[in-house]
Write a protein that binds this DNA or RNA. Structure first.
Lengths: 154, 154
DNA sequence: GTGTCAGCCGCAACTCGTTGCAATAGCAAA
DNA sequence: TTTGCTATTGCAACGAGTTGCGGCTGACAC
């Protein structure tokens, strides 16, 4: 009988980048452990950004024995594979971008506490300015820039 | 005989913004304590940026009993007075700008680990882009933007 | 000089994140 | 299925930063 769930190695392209994670990890001589599986399951249910603290909490819901150090180490590994990318919120805390695609940045309003995205077009203006004037190739997504939104200033 | 060291209250303008710190603190109903004096002494000997950890260490050199919580609380107070301004390094750690004057930002090169300043003119391009496109009034000095310098990419 | 009172200090405990180390357990080969 | 190598885990300890609380003390009034 046909198996309901085989994974990416069966010829066709993977449905999600997460499907290939286990194989990619093993391909590097690394190991696919229950702890890593749990974290990947948690991540594939989310989009956008998550704090490390939240990820640890969600892993704990599934597996009480989850320890922070394992989660942080696994996140480093997933970052090497390009599946997540770490950054820092306005207060310097860790934040992970899940499946980072487009170049974008984040703005935090110190007035209302909301977070806004810098769209790729706007990000390009900033990246170009620093490239042409200083020769610097910046990664806008690594930090959250603070300021005041239109509704909170003036 | 003329006194060699009187302070700002003697009619003429203060030589340094630090000279008025004690009076400004007291004027707000707050207190000028030995711990605050020590931190101000440490700060007035430095320029540019310092990490909180370094400030704590330097205060400890003068007064073994200095505790971190007092230093952090005093830094918050000095920030309210505009004498320092906190930000975050590339790794999210606290960094204090001493006597912040010009609008400038910081770049960190993930290749060589060096830190560079974004000059006011370049900063203006970025601030203007976000103001005109998103109505956001950003504070570039709050975080350190990561990237690769001219020598480390390409 | 003395008293009063609220602001401040130091402590202890906590959160977030990192690291060294001994023990466990993937996974591939036999 | 068993063996053996080593990547990975969990622990414990640490560094950075924050917070609540009881006691101390600066600053003002008398």
């Amino acid at each position: 009988m046909p198996q309901p769930e085989t994974n990416a190695s069966a010829g066709e392209a993977a449905v999600s980048p997460w499907d290939g994670a286990a194989d990619r990890i093993r391909a590097g001589g690394l190991r696919w452990t229950p702890q890593r599986r749990t974290l990947v399951e948690v991540l594939r249910e989310r989009e956008g950004h998550v704090t490390a603290t939240e990820l640890i909490a969600r892993c704990r819901e599934r597996d009480q024995t989850t320890t922070p150090s394992t989660v942080y180490r696994t996140l480093d590994l997933l970052e090497d594979l390009g599946l997540v990318k770490h950054g820092h919120g306005h207060d310097g805390r860790e934040e992970y971008h899940i499946l980072p695609q487009q170049v974008h940045g984040h703005l935090y309003c110190v007035g209302c506490g909301m977070t806004w995205e810098i769209r790729p077009e706007t990000a390009a203006v900033i990246v170009d300015a620093l490239a042409s004037q200083l020769g610097f190739d910046v990664d806008l997504s690594h930090v959250t820039i603070s300021g005041r939104c239109a509704g909170c200033h003036g």
